[in-house]
Write a protein that binds this DNA or RNA. Structure first.
Lengths: 202, 202
DNA sequence: ACGAACCAAGCAAGCGCTTGGTTTTTAGAT
DNA sequence: ATCTAAAAACCAAGCGCTTGCTTGGTTCGT
C-alpha cells in the first residue's frame, strides 16, 4: 500500500492491499477495531488477536502502530475514490452527479463496502503532520470531484452558495449521520441521500 | 457540579463550579487539554501539572479520570444552554430564533465563551453508558429548543423537511466547522452563521 | 538454502490510581 | 478576638498494570 498507491496510480485503477495476505488481514481487522473502539483504545494486541498472530509479529509488516492507521486511511480514501469515479460515469446531469456524490459518501461513511470514512475524521489527531500531509494528498483528488459538480450546480442555480462553503456544510451533515442514523429504521441509505439532496439543492 | 446541576435546576439559573476553586481550575485545565489533545491522550499528570498540583491530588476531587470528562461535558452543556436561553429571549420571530440557535451553537463549538461543544462529539466513546445517559439528559433540554423552532419553521414554509432530519443535518454542518473554519480569515463567525442559515432556510 | 513470516518472551516507559502522612482551611466554643 | 479540633486539600512516593515495541530464535514457502 504505502509504496503502490499514489493518487496518480490510483486513478489508473491500481488495487488495494491483497485482503488474503497477512498485511491485508491485519489492515482489515485494524479497520474494524478502529471503528469500534477508536485508534487510541485499540491496542496492537487487540489487532494481533483478531488476526490470529502474536502482537510482536505486527511489526514485521508495519514500522509502528501509527503506520497501520495511515494505511487504513489511505486504503479507505483510495477505495472510496475509485468507487465514486465508477459511479460518476453513469451520471449525465449535474443533478445526478450531486446525488451520486452524496450517495457514495454516505456509503463510505456507513462502510457499505467495508471501508469507513468516519475514521478519517475521528482519528486525524493521531497522525503526525507528515502522515497527515500524505493522507491529505489523496483527499485532494477526492475533493476535486465535489468542487467541479458544485461549481456547475451554482451556475445552474441549484444552490446559492459557492463550492467550498457548501461542500463543508454537506460534508458535516453527512459525516454526522454516523452519530444518529440507524439502518434498521424506515429510512434506508438511498432515501437518506435523497433527503440530503433536498436539504441543500433546488 | 455533579450534585447541583440537574436540567431542572439549570433552568432556574444555578451556576457552574466556581472557577476559583481547585475543582473549577482542574475542570478548566482539563477542558483545554481535552480540546487540544483529546481525552485519551491527556493524562491525569497533564491536568495536574497545568493546574499546579500533584497528580494524585486530583482524586480528592474526582473519583476517576472519566468523571472529569463527564463534569466538563455537563458544564459545557449547562453553560451553553443558559446562554442560548438568554439570547432566545431577544428573538421575536421564527427567523430570528433560527439565526440565534445557529449563532449560539457556533459560539459553543468554537469556544467563544470558554466552553467547547466539540468535546461532546469527539469524546462520547470515552464515557460509559451510565455517564452517557447523564449527559444525554442535559442534551435533551437543549435539543427541545431546536425542535420547537424547527417545527415553526416548517409551518411557515422556511424549510421543507421535518425537524429531526433537518436538525441532524444542521448539527453536522455546524460541528464540522471545527475542522475547517479559521477565525483569522475574512469570514467571521456571525457571517458564517448567516451562511448556514442561508443554506438551510427559505 | 535462503528470505519472508512468525513466535515466545520480555523490556522500558507511561498509565490511572492508592496510600500514609502533612499542611491549610473552616467553624464552633470560649 | 482567640484557641482548638475536625475537615478539607494537598504532597511524596510508588504500586500494579498496560502499552508500544524489541530481540533472538524458529518455521515455512519456494
Amino acid at each position: 500500500m504505502s509504496e503502490t498507491a499514489t493518487p496518480e496510480r490510483l486513478l489508473q485503477g491500481i488495487t488495494l492491499t491483497d485482503p488474503n495476505s497477512a498485511k491485508g488481514r491485519l489492515l482489515q481487522q485494524a479497520r474494524l477495531l478502529f471503528r469500534q473502539k477508536g485508534f487510541e483504545k485499540t491496542t496492537v494486541r487487540d489487532i494481533a488477536a483478531a488476526t490470529g498472530i502474536q502482537s510482536g509479529s505486527i511489526f514485521h509488516h508495519f514500522a509502528n502502530k501509527e503506520e497501520i492507521l495511515r494505511c487504513v486511511m489511505e486504503e479507505t480514501i483510495c477505495f472510496s475514490l475509485a468507487h465514486l469515479q465508477e459511479q460518476l460515469k453513469q451520471a449525465n446531469t449535474t443533478e445526478a452527479e450531486l446525488r451520486t456524490l452524496i450517495g457514495c459518501e454516505l456509503d463510505a461513511i456507513h462502510s457499505r463496502h467495508g471501508h469507513d470514512f468516519t475514521i478519517l475524521g475521528y482519528e486525524w489527531r493521531s497522525l503526525n503532520p507528515g502522515n497527515q500531509a500524505r493522507v491529505l494528498e489523496y483527499r485532494g483528488v477526492y475533493e476535486k470531484l465535489w468542487s467541479k459538480s458544485l461549481h456547475d450546480a451554482k451556475a445552474k442555480g441549484l444552490c446559492q452558495q459557492e463550492g467550498f462553503l457548501l461542500r463543508s456544510f454537506i460534508r458535516g451533515a453527512l459525516i454526522d449521520t454516523i452519530n444518529w442514523y440507524k439502518a434498521e429504521g424506515e429510512l434506508n441509505l438511498e432515501a437518506l441521500a435523497d433527503e440530503v439532496y433536498r436539504a441543500f439543492f433546488r
